[in-house]
Design a protein around this nucleic acid. Structure first.
Lengths: 335, 335
DNA sequence: AGCATTAGAACAAACGTTTGTTCTAATAAT
DNA sequence: ATTATTAGAACAAACGTTTGTTCTAATGCT
């Protein structure tokens, strides 16, 4: 692809390369380039349709104006939302985002990070897919600004922003219990992820507090399939749960499918509550009560933390858990 | 960020930079580097945790191994799906994807494309947000491999892959008519996009064929809000539509909301059919019949076309419309 | 008039690769 | 023994910027 460079403009205007460079970078005043030269340069730049070569600039300047966003998958609407929001923030700060999807596979995640270093990204926002962190730490130790989003490492002084998943899960479980449920099935997502662990802990803590020790935890993926399978399994047992806590709305969708197949209804036959809000939850046959995460704030804060890190602006605190809330709809039955 | 380069390896091994480069690029045999040298280079590369500097390689080699993906927004699940699928394909071909979201704003789209050129992307897959194409053509004329995905320009010999939206809309409308509907409201999305135009045309053609001339077209955005607003408006009129054709499932969600507010039901009071399938459609209070697009194939084919273009492998045809299909659920009432 | 200052711009090195060319031993051929 | 060949590797230019330094007129000062 033919490109018009700074050099072409220099030739065209009979000015030097450095002069052109300075004008194009807004350093004209600083280097007292005459108004006249400035004008003629800007004009020919427009006329020739000049495009800076970032690779060259990057090489020289040591900055790529590029940020890596690494998430499990865009097909989970929760992450798609986050990605969309944070991409916006990156753009407005003058960065482009390079997308990485780990597909919840640690080897893939490691590979992605490797190529990112090669691409010389200026920062990384990641939702790590497991609890392994050596590869991330290695980058941090090399000085790459990093923030964990949604998923994080508690004891690793890497900035993070996530929801207080423990609390969300605790609240949801309490709600279920308050409504008389004593036999609750929790269908979890990816086992080694922080949110999942926290949700599990919150779930158990709430049960413990109420002296309930009959519960089941099943599942291993934030997918509808997982929700479907585990729900089917649960309903084959003799003692069926009266309520299900799904660790994501995608999982809940699977639950719904299994429940429907059994010709059962929510909440008459089973109560259901799940993590992550979504517009469609309002229109399901039974609108689903859910734990909502403040996605926009998560994205905004993650971006803020990252740029603080990049620009070396000290920050009071860069590890935060945002408050979840519960959106009441109609999927919980009072027993 | 400190980085280990080819130079460090050269110093460490007492071999020359070029030798190291050749080994790292798998050109060892070609340049008859001794087995011994190869081994020692590979080993120290691993030991030092070497990371290629793509910016430098790009500058020299003129290739960035980067592809730009420009879509309206990730918060539309349809595009999120496409993005996820095609990102996969890019990765497996050894490319990274740079993400661009136009937010349906042409100025933004133009800006994005401008910075992409600067970033020296090797290719572009775009779902253009309007019918304006000069900025895209300019890139094509400079030799940038481009393919349009979902949205395209009919007479512009830029490769594209999309669904036959005319047909999809035609089929859907026919279905409605066959079920006795004569007063149909079409709620459209972004007006100047090809899919929207095609859907509109298909809708009208089907009506025409049946000699029906009472119909309404409203709306201007692929959002739930738009669907909500237009549905409300429609129900304020004296002659209410008996069926709605929503140009996206996001729009349909808005319809549903308005319908629910009016204490009406689908399909008893209004029939509803929409574009784009999604798992949650199965679990709505009334499972929605929809026109499904072959997203995976769209992504796969787009990637194929792009790489054919990049690798200059001639292609029989690179402008295709894939077949839509209708997934029957329960949202259409026989009048 | 002579020197110092300044405005305006050019020069040239450097960033980390890739790659065409050249160099140096060692081996093979005569 | 001398020359030709070859294996193995080093040299050096180039990619398009950015930026510290240097250059050249022109102006200001005494």
């Amino acid at each position: 692809m033919k490109k018009v460079g700074i050099k072409d403009i220099a030739r065209e205007t009979n000015l030097s390369i450095s002069t052109v460079s300075r004008v194009m970078n807004g350093k004209a005043e600083e280097f007292r380039i005459s108004k006249q030269s400035q004008e003629i340069i800007l004009e020919t730049a427009k006329r020739l349709d000049y495009n800076a070569n970032y690779a060259a600039a990057n090489l020289r300047y040591g900055k790529s104006n590029t940020i890596a966003l690494v998430i499990p998958t865009l097909s989970n609407p929760f992450f798609a939302r986050l990605a969309s929001e944070i991409n916006d923030d990156f753009i407005t700060e003058g960065y482009s985002t390079i997308l990485g999807e780990s597909g919840e596979k640690i080897e893939l995640e490691e590979n992605i990070l490797k190529t990112l270093v090669s691409r010389d990204v200026d920062g990384l926002v990641i939702a790590p897919c497991t609890d392994s962190f050596e590869h991330i730490l290695r980058l941090r130790d090399r000085g790459l600004p990093i923030v964990c989003m949604d998923r994080y490492f508690k004891n690793l002084n890497i900035p993070y922003v996530s929801t207080d998943n423990y609390k969300g899960s605790y609240m949801a479980t309490k709600l279920l219990i308050e409504n008389g449920h004593k036999d609750i099935l929790a269908i979890q997502g990816v086992k080694k992820s922080t949110p999942n662990n926290q949700r599990l802990a919150g779930f158990k803590a709430a049960l413990m507090e109420e002296g309930i020790d009959t519960f089941t935890v099943a599942g291993n993926d934030f997918t509808a399939q997982n929700g479907y399978l585990e729900t089917r399994l649960a309903f084959q047992k003799v003692s069926k749960p009266t309520a299900i806590l799904a660790f994501s709305n995608t999982i809940a969708l699977g639950c719904l499918k299994a429940i429907k197949e059994k010709k059962l209804n929510v909440p008459e036959d089973v109560s259901l509550i799940c993590f992550d809000d979504h517009p469609y939850l309002d229109f399901l046959s039974t609108p689903l009560t859910c734990i909502v995460q403040p996605e926009t704030e998560i994205a905004k804060l993650s971006a803020r933390f990252l740029f603080a890190n990049i620009n070396k602006t000290p920050l009071e605190s860069d590890q935060v858990l945002l408050e979840p809330s519960i959106k009441m709809r109609d999927s919980i039955k009072k027993l």
